[in-house]
Design a protein around this nucleic acid. Structure first.
Lengths: 202, 202
DNA sequence: CGAGTCGTTGAACGGAATCAATCGTCGTGG
DNA sequence: CCACGACGATTGATTCCGTTCAACGACTCG
């Protein structure tokens, strides 16, 4: 979901800069961990952050990937604790906006609150779309549907928003299957591809 | 998403009943179409609604399925027009809540706005959890994780919130696989089951 | 009573995961 | 500056597990 199309920016201009803090992380470092007290909402300035949860059997599940400009952990505003961990996938800089400050600001300024509602609404839409995608069993069809739903999918060019590997994970496929299906589709003339640039043929 | 696990209710108690309208649709009828002016948010009273989008080549993409009790088109609150069409999959009754009324109410009542934000935040969290579930490949593990995440999952009793068939669909499994895995788990003594009542053994 | 649906089980198949190997590129540090 | 390691992209071979097709009993509702 690397911001998959819809740039879910957390509008920082709504808040007081003095209530923000810059944090740098090396690859593999955690910005916060599941269960930590929720203290802030974050925006990625540089790098890549993955929201992950570790399942009982030790597996990692990636819930969300936030690239440059994207915010994450907004939902933590109304939760006492983080419900997942945030891991820097590469050297990363994030800005932390105090949860308390955000709440105060939103509570006193209804217009800002409304902007925030709009943001959350969009997220809900996006998540639902992703969930619906996952219910398509065939890898081929799932990929096609994903491409269709993406901006430019109906006639224009599509830019994959992340390394193919990550897109594959987003789709719930192994990267091998993803590669294979892409080349199959290209061989059949259904799509044209140049790296991360794809075009669907009518 | 028959709403099965996650009751994504739009909290109608926040709004004035006089601003709501009941609408009945036959199977195949549209509640609204892509591009229509966004006038209302809906709740399914009875039946099933599919949010679909038609791609350039005439294919249908299902974005979301809303069962009884679920709301849909909430995101339309902040959009001028609907970005997809809502089609009744079976004879269906929906309640339409005026978009304007909702906005007015929220804008003048900060507490309600905040309640709405909290609701949306919860939805985001829930959707992410479901997405995480889907990333577990093994049917067995996915089911166990599902049970574990459910209220009562850690020690108590779990009530499946819908017919097994629907739960299976929620989990992205065929009902056959779901039945089989459940009985396998029971045979192995990992769970105890009586109809929709399940208990995990420590 | 019959139609419809849920729950259940069996058998066979197919497609995606898995394991594995190779190539290219990019960044880093010696 | 080049060697090395890391990682993305790609392709091949094999396995396995979930899907699919099919059939049946139980139950409900009209």
């Amino acid at each position: 979901m690397t911001g998959s199309g819809s740039p879910l920016f957390f509008d920082m201009t709504l808040f007081d800069e003095r209530q923000m803090k810059r944090i740098s992380c090396k690859a593999g470092e955690f910005v916060f961990r599941e269960g930590d007290r929720a203290k802030a909402v974050y925006v990625v300035e540089k790098g890549l952050v993955r929201l992950v949860r570790f399942t009982a059997d030790g597996n990692r599940a990636v819930l969300h990937t936030a690239g440059r400009g994207a915010s994450f952990a907004e939902a933590a505003l109304f939760a006492e604790r983080y419900h997942c961990s945030a891991e820097a996938a590469e050297p990363t800089v994030v800005t932390a906006v105090s949860r308390k400050h955000i709440l105060d600001t939103l509570r006193t300024d209804n217009a800002k609150m409304e902007a925030y509602v709009a943001l959350l609404s969009q997220q809900v839409r996006e998540l639902r779309t992703r969930l619906e995608l996952r219910s398509i069993r065939s890898a081929r069809e799932r990929i096609l549907q994903y491409l269709y739903l993406r901006p430019g999918g109906a006639g224009g060019f599509i830019h994959l928003p992340a390394p193919l590997k990550d897109v594959a994970a987003d789709l719930g496929l192994t990267h091998e299957t993803f590669y294979r299906q892409l080349s199959a589709l290209e061989k059949e003339g259904v799509i044209m591809r140049d790296g991360r640039r794809i075009r669907i043929r009518g």
